[in-house]
């Protein structure tokens, strides 16, 4: 488990990462969400020791993280690049060796990964000959090939077509299934919602929300939609009830904070007494709505 506590980093007058705390738990996929300049990349660089911290700590299974720990983390930086003139196999083996693999292990792992991505026949080609999407696959192999003890991936899905996104997602799930913590950043909220067990939303260098998608959803106001057989205007007269919208027989309601229990029960009883009830349902907000709300 990687635990980030009160992490802070300034660049001149700008506080890029401001008292950020969250956890990346073992065997779970954690999505790192936020707009441009929210501090995602800086946070990841701080975790990887590429930048010095101005405050706060990063711990690895309860002890302060060291370079030896970091060497076991598969890291993929935001902007991509490899040696354009070197053969794919050669440079992946090189990066594997730098991660502490033997040459033979590195070669076997690279070959298996290239096969999985359908790139086995291109192992001897130069990287510059590959399409951008394939270059990105090669780069993710660099992060995954040494059986990393954790993964920290900056925008691993950007620029991939839907099929590639699926195979990348499968690959990440395999590693999560090994029980390692995985943190990745993304702009694509639907993707994060689909893949992640946990979410951390960053805005202006601060964590504005974090937790499971369900927890985030239920942290918002509880709203219900009511569709009746006749006009719903009478709801406005109910005590402890905030009626957000009435449109003929349809209404959106929210129980006022501090109201006694049983308000919704009373509403439903009244509605049934007055006639037909077609729908009475909790409105589950989309993650994008929550995101807009917390980063506004």
């Amino acid at each position: 488990m990687i635990e980030i506590e009160h992490l802070t980093r300034r660049f001149a007058d700008l506080t890029a990462v401001d008292d950020v705390s969250f956890r990346v738990e073992d065997g779970l996929m954690t999505g790192f969400v936020g707009g441009n300049g929210a501090g995602k990349t800086t946070t990841m660089r701080l975790i990887m020791g590429l930048l010095a911290t101005h405050g706060g700590t990063v711990s690895w299974n309860g002890t302060p993280i060291t370079d030896a720990h970091r060497r076991t983390i598969g890291y993929m930086p935001e902007e991509r690049g490899l040696y354009p003139k070197q053969k794919i196999l050669d440079q992946l083996v090189y990066l594997g060796e730098l991660a502490g693999m033997t040459r033979a292990d590195a070669k076997a792992s690279v070959t298996a990964h290239l096969e999985r991505f359908g790139l086995a026949d291109r192992a001897e080609e130069r990287v510059e000959k590959l399409s951008l999407g394939n270059q990105q696959r090669v780069q993710i192999i660099a992060a995954l090939m040494a059986a990393p003890a954790a993964l920290i991936l900056d925008e691993p899905f950007s620029g991939l077509d839907p099929n590639a996104v699926d195979s990348m997602a499968d690959l990440l799930r395999d590693h999560v299934a090994r029980g390692i913590p995985v943190l990745f950043s993304s702009h694509q909220l639907d993707l994060v919602e689909r893949l992640c067990d946990n979410l951390v939303i960053l805005s202006g260098g601060r964590v504005v929300a974090s937790g499971t998608a369900d927890a985030l959803r239920s942290a918002g106001p509880h709203r219900h939609r009511l569709v009746l057989g006749a006009d719903a205007g009478w709801l406005r007269g109910m005590p402890h009830l905030h009626v957000l919208d009435v449109d003929g027989a349809t209404a959106v309601i929210e129980v006022v904070e501090g109201a006694p229990d049983g308000v919704l029960h009373d509403v439903l009883t009244q509605a049934l007494a007055r006639g037909e009830v077609h729908e009475f349902a909790r409105i589950v907000p989309k993650l994008s709505e929550i995101y807009r709300e917390v980063t506004a």
């Binding site: 370079d67 030896a68 060497r71 076991t72 090189y94 060796e97 730098l98 991660a99 502490g100 693999m101 033997t102 292990d105 590195a106 076997a108 792992s109 298996a112 990964h113 096969e115 999985r116 995954l144 090939m145 040494a146 059986a147 690959l171 395999d174 590693h175 090994r178």
Partner: peptide
Amino acid sequence: MTVQPAQAAQRPGDQRPGDPRTAPWLIVA
């Protein structure tokens, strides 16, 4: 097909004498 990641890779940090793996600066050179 699933990829079996290589067995728990050892790291340059825990290199011991007699280790067949090459020192990092030599790999770079």
